[in-house]
Amino acid sequence: MNIFRLFGDLSHLAAIAILLLKIWKTRSCAGVSGKTQLLFAVCFITRYIDLFLHFVSLYNTEKVMKLIYISASVFTCYLIFFKFKATYDGNHDSMRAEFLIVPAAGLACLINTKFDAIEILWTFSIYLEAVAILPQLFLISKTGEAETITSHYLFAQGSYRALYILNWIYRYHYESHVDTIAIVAGVVQTILYCDFFYLYITKVVKGQKIVLPA
């Protein structure tokens, strides 16, 4: 474990917590893409499938973190699609998730480390996570704005994988560890946030709201 990965995971936890708090406190999921949250839930379930296959006692924080990610993302989807369904902005959350899931699944079968079920699921989860935020960014471009709290959520969510890139550089240099698939997908994922990061740093930090087109 290194400082970059630690802060990456903390940033990811913060993002999940910020979104849950926003929906729970405002009792509304306006401005939140339900599809992105569904894709994240699929990512966690397919990536941490080992938790279900051979249940191991919660002897280390990693197992606990995996369970937190899975339960929090499923609970977030429950809030969006059931509890606060009336506030779900289905009209603007219109990016076709199939256009993300099918290519990720196809690519996972073509480019992977080992052609076995668990490894293919892990690879699918990595590719899907790289593009899972697109419906959320698409929704913001359609509505033309993002609530400040949603901007904070996106900043934490984007920072998590950006910090992981620093972690991979660290591990390459000190542990000669390389996980090419995760690195390439992580770089693509972080690049997708660049436009948002620019808006966040130039606007939200100054107390302004993000309004598109910028």
């Binding site: 995971d9 990811h12 996980d179």
Partner: peptide, 10 residues
Amino acid sequence: KKPSAAHDEL
């Protein structure tokens, strides 16, 4: 550089 056998990250 060796690729990771098991994926040891979240």
